[in-house]
Computed example of a mutant assay.
Amino acid sequence: MKRTYLLLFLALALVFSCSTDSTDDTSEGANGLLGTWALTDILIDPAVNDDDLNFAKEIIAFLQNENCDLVILSFNDSGTLESENKIDHLSINVGTGGLDIPCPTESDEENSLWVLDGDQLTISREGEDDEVITIQLDGNTLIIPGESVDANNYDGAEAVFTKQ
């Protein structure tokens, strides 16, 4: 069950990387966010010893080696965010040959609006309150802290996205 929550966290991290209604933000930071990003890793605080987080890290690494992206975010210059999330469609099989995790063929897609102000990413989805997340954007790496998604369950983890 905890693995399901971890996978849900990763999916939410991607969804929450979208922002509001400003389409005229041409700052360097917002321009750096433009493009397609794929979930490539999670970082875990060394002081945190959480088997579920460690297992999620292994799953992401395994699927990356198979050229399978679990979560893809596309930040467009029109201020829209398109996300594709395969986490809810993961199938983890354990057999005599070991662990088998096929790349999901189904995904959940969502469209949102985004605005970046400094390191504050605001995501707006119709019918919901805006979500503001503090991000780290450094070249081709985008990091979203787990505490921004769920402070009770993901303290010490960060979702890492790499620009494609």
Score class of each variant (00 low, 15 high):
123 I>G: 12
117 D>T: 15
79 G>C: 07
161 F>V: 06
40 T>S: 14
121 L>T: 02
12 L>S: 14
18 C>A: 14
21 D>M: 09
15 V>C: 03
86 K>A: 15
108 D>Y: 11
115 V>I: 13
163 K>G: 10
46 P>A: 10
20 T>S: 13
26 T>N: 10
93 N>C: 01
1 M>R: 13
104 P>S: 06
31 N>R: 04
151 A>H: 01
141 T>G: 08
18 C>I: 06
122 T>I: 09
81 L>T: 00
116 L>P: 01
129 D>V: 10
82 E>V: 01
23 T>Q: 06
138 D>C: 14
22 S>K: 13
72 I>E: 06
2 K>T: 04
42 I>A: 01
33 L>F: 15
37 W>E: 10
132 V>A: 08
25 D>Y: 04
151 A>E: 01
28 E>R: 05
135 I>D: 00
147 E>I: 04
128 E>I: 12
24 D>S: 14
81 L>C: 02
114 W>M: 14
97 G>S: 15
82 E>M: 02
41 D>P: 06
45 D>E: 00
76 N>M: 07
65 N>V: 00
116 L>S: 07
68 C>T: 05
34 L>S: 11
113 L>K: 14
6 L>S: 09
147 E>M: 07
56 A>M: 03
22 S>G: 02
1 M>F: 07
135 I>K: 08
114 W>G: 12
118 G>H: 03
35 G>C: 14
6 L>I: 09
9 F>E: 02
133 I>N: 00
106 E>A: 13
